[in-house]
Nucleic acid binder design. Structure first.
Length: 482
DNA sequence: TGAAATGTTGGGGCG
DNA sequence: ACGCCCCAACATTTC
């Protein structure tokens, strides 16, 4: 940080939030320059509804905290409460002279942090925030006229790629901890936050995800050695591991985007020529763009970016919404995706787009319903990416997919899940159905269904809505607002 | 990071 | 050999 002299208070505090790692953590590096460091995580249950974690997210957080505490040799103080009160008390009790954190960009977090900064400063404490979760911060990328970009490509190419290079990842600093019984934590103390589910739906998830800083590094290495070269093609196929699967780690900051960005760059000698490399880096760019939009146009979580959509005749239909949520729409690729989400807390990206298009267009249900369900169910739930993604699909977002671009889930299934491996994994009742009707069982004859031991409406649902007429209906609705 | 509708072309069957 | 029709296959436009 230029032109700032280091505060020479002997004791500093680092407030961990969504940066649960010891490597490449700017706030931790700053805090560690002091003789003694108090590390704290504050679990706040009084957050606004929009910010309250869903079950899968909580599960992730639990493991992330265990991992962080471990990396800090048991010196992560873990408490429940209101951050403003907790910080004021802890700073007093432990004679803290400087407080550090990495910035968050959700509007509620910005206003909370602003208040806390003011309060702590009034107590004579030095407070500094750093950038620990974005490659380029929203305020530093603007058009020539000083206004924010609204279209991805110029934002990324002219704004980001021409700006100063992102920070190169830094090492874990040497840390001298405050010695205090109160600041010592064991696993039981983290367990007491009750972040784990009371019924154990998480055994499957447990096998698939190693939520730790080390686990993030493994995933990143696997991605670079095994998947990135064919990323451009393979990322579309839900039955294979063609995507990076780094989103949960990025969300909680077990991995910084800088670590991902430079690991990929360095592995390919700094060249972006390989298609998969270029495309992956631009996916990190989309993540940046989501935060950028959230920062500059801060109501994208609740409001249509494109105001025309305020008049869109969304349908309220509990039955349709529930069928979608439970994976009982009768459209195999949709149901497989929604069941994957429910069972594993994750959904393949291609399938996320397909199920979102189906909800918003074929069922004509408000994107906010989908956004809320994803928020509740996803391990990697992230309000910036989630709201930007849903608005993109709905057509109401900045640089969105045009409304008339409607996915046909049958064609998408036939294109990206040819052999039905993905569908059959989550809809095992369709196991014996041949490829011809696998993605459209409602068109199979009763003999073919009988051969596959399926009675539609009993073993597997009949389809909720006709794809052709519901598509037509959505287009007609769109013409009323354009 | 669509899909359907519509338009164009060219080969082959056929009188 | 020729024109006509049909219809894939591909291209373009439209939603």
């Amino acid at each position: 940080m230029p032109n700032t002299t280091q505060n020479d208070a002997p004791r500093s505090l680092i407030w961990f939030r969504q940066d649960l790692r010891v490597k490449d953590n700017p706030a931790l590096i700053n805090a560690a320059k002091h003789e003694h460091v108090l590390a704290i995580y504050i679990f706040d249950e009084s957050l606004p509804d929009k910010a309250k974690l869903g079950g899968a997210s909580k599960w992730c957080l639990h493991h992330a905290l265990i991992s962080l505490n471990d990396a800090l040799d048991g010196n992560l103080m873990v408490v429940s409460g209101n951050p403003e009160d907790v910080l004021a008390t802890v700073c007093k009790e432990h004679d803290i002279g400087a407080v550090y954190w990495n910035r968050m960009y959700e509007p509620w977090a910005i206003s909370r942090d602003t208040d806390i900064k003011k309060e702590l400063k009034s107590q004579g404490i030095d407070v500094r925030s750093s950038n620990g979760s974005l490659l380029w911060e929203p305020m530093q990328v603007l058009k020539k006229d000083e206004t924010p970009y609204k279209v991805f490509t110029p934002y990324y190419k002219n704004g980001c790629l021409n700006a100063a290079h992102p920070r190169y990842p830094e090492r874990k600093p040497h840390i001298g901890f405050v010695t205090s019984v109160e600041a010592q934590t064991d696993d039981a103390k983290i367990a007491a936050l009750a972040l784990l589910p009371t019924i154990s739906w998480d055994t499957e998830i447990d096998k698939q995800w190693n939520i730790s800083e080390q686990g993030a590094q493994y995933k990143l290495e696997r991605f670079i050695t095994e998947a990135i070269e064919d990323y451009n093609e393979d990322r579309n196929i839900p039955s294979i591991r063609g995507t990076s699967q780094l989103s949960p780690y990025l969300h909680f900051g077990l991995l910084s985007p800088n670590q991902a960005w430079y690991a990929v760059h360095d592995a390919f000698d700094g060249s972006r020529e390989k298609k998969g490399v270029y495309v992956y880096l631009s996916e990190l760019g989309w993540r940046e763009f989501s935060y950028y939009l959230l920062f500059h146009f801060n109501d994208i979580q609740n409001r249509n970016f494109n105001k025309k959509f305020d008049n869109f005749p969304w349908q309220q239909n509990k039955k349709y919404l529930q069928a979608w949520q439970q994976g009982n729409t009768g459209v195999p690729i949709i149901d497989a995706g929604m069941r994957e989400l429910w069972q594993t807390g994750y959904m393949h990206n291609r399938v996320r787009m397909i199920v979102a298009s189906y909800l918003v267009k074929n069922l004509m249900i408000d994107w906010r319903e989908g956004e809320r369900w994803f928020w509740d169910c996803l391990l990697d739930a992230d309000s910036a990416s989630n709201s930007a993604g849903w608005q993109w699909v709905a057509g109401s977002g900045a640089d969105a997919s045009p409304y008339f671009r409607i996915f046909n889930p049958v064609l998408q299934g036939e294109k990206f899940d040819k052999q039905g491996e993905y569908v059959k994994k989550y809809c095992p009742e369709l196991k014996a159905l041949g490829n011809k009707y696998l993605h459209k069982p409602w068109e199979a004859s009763s003999e073919e269904l009988a051969d596959a031991n399926i009675v539609l409406g009993k073993d597997y649902p009949g389809h909720l809505v006709d794809l052709k007429t519901s598509r037509r209906r959505a287009l007609d609705a769109y013409s009323t607002i354009k």
